[in-house]
Design a protein around this nucleic acid. Structure first.
Length: 454
RNA sequence: GUGAAUGUAGCUCAGUUGGUUAGAGCGCCUGAUUGUGGUUCAGGAGGUCGCGGGUUCGAGCCCCGUCUUUCACCCCA
């Protein structure tokens, strides 16, 4: 049969993995530097844990897992009915699917917090690096399986957390050498906007439409809002927002506080943004009043990070959610977090040629022992063990094949040193150490080789 | 889910209006050099032309379907 992969999934070669790990290390280092500790959760969750948290679009994109052994069920008639219903529209049936692959790391985290609430010290700062799955149509920068790197603080309403996440974001991308813009906004500002134009009940329609302004233009947005049932009066009052152009954070704040002065929630949103920015400064930040984000659960600050160099969707995003744990039975716990998408960050690095491969990192093989035969390779196994005990990554070529083949293996893997231990070398204890970059060879005993490697 | 493009050797790509045995560069293998890689030289292997149908005397090329990748919409990391 012809080997193939499910649509939207990928293999990663050793070269790709070293590069992915480089991104991962940068992120993980920043997370740890700020006191976040790691957790993991299962790839699968109960379907009920996930549904209804991401909005209608999100629910459509959940990968549901078909129950096993459905052929043994005693409820086949009910199952058939449920299946027919599922063919009509997106319905859930516990008889058919009670599990789903996780769609993000935030909702499983909320579930985790509630289940472990008695073991957790709040505020709880956790990070989590795991794949997530979305049944989206794949294209560039969009995969059905991708890895998210999340850092969240839960159990604290302090805006210092938002500021810290902004600083972490800056740290991650500066260590990767990528120029980015951190777009921020606040759901309370959007709510205030809906409030002041008299369209409180149309908040979601309003934000979704707003989000598209720079893509489809004012007129199209107005048309969409009319279609959603927004009154002419409301639209008229939105006009200054449509006409507003970002110049600076200060000017935007000034504009917003005037616009929203009669809205309690709107004013609160403006104050929050102001405070966050007081803590972390405005470097690399754009206050984007059209930023909305699709996920339902955000209630305060929202972030989105875009590359300044590459044309790709957001490479990180997040925000504050006031009551995600509420549905699981623990209310009054607010959290805020950010998620880095390493697959997209990889694509940006690739597009911008940011790799600067010092391919011989200390993680790859430093020394290869050439295999001359049974007795010699047995000797080399012991010698290699000695090197490994000193922390030097070493390998013995497994087959007794032509030296040319073994040398080009070392060359291909960019192994910097090769040890030649033939019968003569073994007899005298003076092994031949070849530097593969310069071509120089020295006769050294094992201790001297170890010393030279360190 | 809607609309559109794409697929030829391991990789990047040629392939004329449908016409004999489908090519190149790089990579790979062998030898020159049986204890020395990266350079050079000589030789070699490798293709159901994504897959399945159809039209035709004849299809890599035309038609239909399907899958993959990509682009736009939608949404997002």
């Amino acid at each position: 049969m012809k080997p193939s992969l499910p649509k939207g999934t990928r293999d990663f070669t050793p070269v790709e993995m070293t590069r992915r790990n480089r991104i991962l290390d940068s992120i993980q280092k920043v997370f740890r530097l700020h006191g976040y500790s790691q957790i993991e959760t299962p790839a699968m969750e109960n379907l009920t844990t996930l549904t209804g948290k991401y909005g209608d679009e999100g629910d459509q994109l959940l990968y549901k897992v078909l129950n096993s052994r459905i052929h043994e069920s005693g409820k086949k008639n009910e199952m058939l009915d449920d299946f027919k219903r599922a063919l009509e529209k997106n319905t859930n049936s516990e008889l058919l699917t009670e599990r789903a692959l996780r769609y993000d790391l935030t909702v499983p985290f909320a579930r985790f917090v509630v289940m472990h609430q008695n073991e957790i010290q709040f505020p709880f700062k956790r990070y989590q690096i795991q794949p997530v799955w979305r049944a989206d149509r794949p294209q560039k920068g969009r995969y059905r399986e991708f890895v998210q790197c999340d850092a969240d603080v839960i159990g604290s309403t302090s805006l210092l957390n938002e500021a810290e996440l902004v600083e972490m974001t800056r740290a991650v991308f500066s260590s990767l050498g990528l120029a980015v813009t951190i777009k921020i906004n606040n759901r309370k500002i959007l709510a205030g906007l809906a409030d002041t134009v008299g369209a409180k009940d149309k908040l979601i329609d309003l934000t979704v439409a707003m989000d598209k302004i720079d893509k489809i233009g004012h007129e199209q947005v107005v048309a969409e809002l009319v279609a959603k049932g927004l009154s002419n009066d409301s639209i008229e009052r939105l006009k200054p927002v449509f006409d507003f152009k970002f110049e600076s954070v200060d000017k935007t704040l000034e504009f917003l506080s005037k616009l929203l002065e009669n809205s309690e929630i709107g004013t609160k949103g403006v104050m929050e943004v102001q405070q966050v920015l007081n803590h972390c400064g405005t470097e690399n930040i754009e206050l984007d009043i059209t930023l909305a984000r699709g996920l339902n659960y955000y209630t305060g600050a929202i972030f989105e990070v875009k590359s300044n160099e590459a044309q790709i969707g957001s490479i990180a995003g997040g925000g504050r959610y006031d009551d995600l744990t509420g549905v699981f039975g623990l209310s009054g716990v607010s959290g805020v977090g950010i998620s880095f998408g390493i697959d997209r960050i990889y694509d940006v690095m690739e597009e911008c040629h940011k790799w600067d491969d010092g391919l011989n990192s200390k993680d790859s093989t430093r020394v290869l022992f050439v295999n001359f035969g049974e007795a010699e390779s047995s000797y080399c196994m012991k010698a290699a063990r000695k090197l490994r005990e000193s922390g030097i990554n070493s390998e013995v070529y497994p087959d007794t094949v032509k030296m040319k083949k073994q040398m080009s293996y070392a060359d291909d893997k960019q192994i910097p040193y090769v040890v030649l231990a033939g019968s003569e070398e073994i007899a005298t204890g003076q092994l031949t150490l070849r530097n593969m970059v310069t071509g120089e060879q020295q006769k050294l005993n094992l201790e001297e080789i170890i010393k030279q490697m360190q």
